[in-house]
């Protein structure tokens, strides 16, 4: 059982990292970003390329991989996403899906389609009362919890965070106070992409690395965002962990059904709390 819980918390943490950006992009810009997990995948491939050069410095390489995603996501925001503000959701879907396909093909072209294996960068276990839990997974969960508090501080205490919170509610009101919201949306977008890349580099050592890894986790992240409430960051945190646990518990009894169960939960939530777009 302890393994199920640890597994559920780990996948919950990873889903949380990825879902923040998705939730914020929808909440502020009303753009459903299907290219969101492209930055997650790019982060992972940057990681495996750099780790070959700098063996043994996992944290450093992970940091570099995330930094690399920042300019890429800025370009995506500036030249594609920003043109989609105020457009109908179908356009945002088609345009971002196209970026995501282009990105996946570029990854296949550069790195090939074969999966890359990676090792647990810590490789040590916490042993207590006969059970051993990988320390790496505990670290991932701790980072998620720290991030949760960090983001709360950011959105509650900094002026940039407050402007984003205000824009989530009333974008026109913020514009009419003379504030160029696009600039802040850009910051939010890059932040969300960098956090997706963080999820990618942390998850890579304990999952399989292939060009489509982003697409498969994207749908799970959408479920997290829908269950947690679009644009609701605290909701995203709790729904990520709840759905992670749903996956872990389902997998224990019916391994193929883990993802299905997430979408069943999402459907139930949608029945009782339809989203209004």
């Amino acid at each position: 059982m302890i393994y199920t819980i640890v597994y559920g918390f780990t996948i919950g943490a990873i889903l949380y990292f990825i879902s923040i950006g998705l939730s914020l992009t929808f909440g502020t810009m009303r753009v459903i970003n299907f290219a969101h997990t492209l930055t997650y995948t790019i982060g992972v491939y940057a990681l495996i390329t750099l780790i070959a050069l700098l063996k043994g410095y996992f944290a450093l390489v992970a940091g570099l991989a995330i930094l690399l995603v920042i300019p890429i996501s800025y370009v995506i925001e500036r030249f594609v996403i920003r043109r989609l503000y105020g457009e109908s959701l179908d356009y945002t879907f088609i345009a971002t899906f196209a970026i995501s396909l282009i990105g996946v093909d570029a990854i296949k072209w550069i790195w090939g389609v074969n999966p890359y294996p990676m090792n647990d960068p810590i490789g040590k276990y916490l042993v207590f009362s006969g059970l051993s839990v990988p320390i790496y997974r505990i670290v991932i969960v701790l980072i998620a919890i720290l991030l949760f508090f960090g983001l709360n501080l950011f959105f509650k205490k900094t002026i940039v965070g407050k402007i984003v919170v205000a824009s989530l509610e009333d974008k026109e009101g913020v514009r009419c106070l003379g504030i160029n919201v696009d600039k802040y949306f850009s910051i939010v977008f890059v932040l969300g992409s960098a956090l997706a890349a963080l999820g990618g580099v942390l998850y890579a050592p304990i999952s399989s690395i292939h060009p489509y890894m982003g697409l498969s986790i994207l749908l799970l992240s959408f479920a997290v965002v829908i269950v947690g409430g679009m644009g609701n960051l605290n909701g995203t945190f709790f729904s990520a962990f709840a759905l992670g646990m749903v996956m872990a518990v389902t997998a224990r009894y019916w391994s193929q059904g883990a993802e299905t169960m997430v979408f069943i939960v999402m459907a139930i939530v949608l029945i009782f709390k339809p989203i209004d777009i």
Partner: peptide
């Protein structure tokens, strides 16, 4: 604006 829309979460 007409709707009396303050930033309600702030």
């Amino acid at each position: 604006a007409q709707e009396k829309k303050v930033f309600g979460n702030l």
